[in-house]
Design a binder for these strands. Sequence first.
DNA 1: TTGCTTATTGGTCGCACACTCAATAGCATC
DNA 2: GATGCTATTGAGTGTGCGACCAATAAGCAA
Lengths: 219, 219
Amino acid sequence: MPSSVQHKRIRKTPAARRAEIVDAAAAVALAEGLECVTLRRIGEELGVRPGLISHYFPSADDLVAEAFGSASSAELDSLLPAERAQGTPTLHLGWFFARAAGASYDNISRLWINARHLSRYRPVLRDRVAEQEAAWRERLTDLIRQGVDRNEFRTGDPYLTTIQILVVLDGLGAHANTDTSNRPAEVSRMAATTAERELGLPHGTLTRSDAPLTASPTG
Amino acid sequence: MPSSVQHKRIRKTPAARRAEIVDAAAAVALAEGLECVTLRRIGEELGVRPGLISHYFPSADDLVAEAFGSASSAELDSLLPAERAQGTPTLHLGWFFARAAGASYDNISRLWINARHLSRYRPVLRDRVAEQEAAWRERLTDLIRQGVDRNEFRTGDPYLTTIQILVVLDGLGAHANTDTSNRPAEVSRMAATTAERELGLPHGTLTRSDAPLTASPTG
DNA sequence: TTGCTTATTGGTCGCACACTCAATAGCATC
DNA sequence: GATGCTATTGAGTGTGCGACCAATAAGCAA
């Protein structure tokens, strides 16, 4: 029963192994933080020697950046799908805020704080953070533009509105590592409130309780 | 010329040495980040052996927390003085936003990101962050309450307004390690705009260009 | 089956970190 | 000027990290 330690080598294609490494790194980054994405830790996670991780990522910084990018873009796809099969922009925006205000979003908030801080020391990660920020901005802007086209939203500058919403969201997420428990409801609603104000929507439009808050807009 | 290395011991009182250590740690924390607050680094900063720092702070975590607390509370005193000798609440709030929106505030934003992230792993720091958050909230709430008393501001809930302002401020500060250069003016003004809206002030009241933006409110 | 490519291992090196503790020397006090 | 307290040193421990590299074996192709 040689199940505890792996002596038998398992040889995989570079593409498969690399994907496996990135997935593991993204999972560790989300659950424990980017500081825990080390050659040893990811190697252990996959039952593989640290040198192998080094082989696929000659610089550990690249792996950390890749872990963040992978986790972030996966979350973005889940939160704001690129192609929206069903539902109106208003509904999608409501779903977005419902999830972004929930406790399940805390891991993502933590990851963003983590990445924004670590950006200070790691240029590779800094570039990746900038790239992801652009991706989130673009995805949200697209949704707002579509809402404007359909006369659901009313704003003179969808891009500006997007940034304003994201600033509030960042501000709310900044405290993911501390309290957030005894936070007034008006504060938790701030992102949605901002969106409603800037998009000319009646107050409460984006936080209707009769909407299926937990359901995925595409599923 | 034994000027390069210090072989001569300089013996100070515990209180003086401790204060010296905390000051150096706070400076390093602000300039280079809390991760750089190490026994070696601070010892080198003071021309002293690392063991001495260990003597005053048996756990390095305590020093890191102290460094953050010291830097944060010093900045708070400078930004929102406890006793305001001159100027109205409106003027003080204007000064506050002027400084908080400037580039010189970036180091503070960086420090807060740093501390909020590191809180994830260090309970001692987490407590200190919570303490400082409370202090900032309290100081700003006091200012707003005073403005309400003098009929300069109009809000039903000074505490809630305070939190809303701080959330926006946190959101703006979150990007201190990345771009912030090509940020629309409306975004940079968001904190002041939020305050004006929530306090019933005419738009522009808190960002008047004729106010002495760089002067300290206490002299 | 044989051979070859290369994915994977195992071991090593240097570095930075916190922490411990006996030995030392500055300085106030007498 | 001698004495005692203790602030300060110096040396050492153990851990975890990234990086490097020769040796090995898995699995495909001939």
